[in-house]
Amino acid sequence: MGSETQNAPAVHVAAAAIPLAQPFSILVTICGETAVSEVRVDAIMPAHQHGLNYAPKVTAISDRLFRVDDMLFHMPGLWELQVNVDFNGRSVSYTSEIALK
């Protein structure tokens, strides 16, 4: 995922094939040594000016691996996945584009 923050720890997202209008889950992996205090996940469709109809549920699997459930993309098109990670009180935003057919 990309971030505008300089020297931000790398964040990777893994997902199986994303179904249209059906719930799915993703895994978020946060690299580096800095302690992670919280991970928040959301998504928007910039062209349509709307976001998710359901609040994603984030569960820590380990210190650096997080499972995100209750994701649902209800329209085809370009989605922007947004992940915010709190590192010791410093919040870093990451985004990634997902094209859903």
Binding site: L20, A21, H48, N53, H74, M75, P76, G77
Partner: peptide, 15 residues
Amino acid sequence: CVLCHNGPRFSNNEF
């Protein structure tokens, strides 16, 4: 139309 009317039922079942 397919933005909302999608899938085998032709509905995303949202609002």
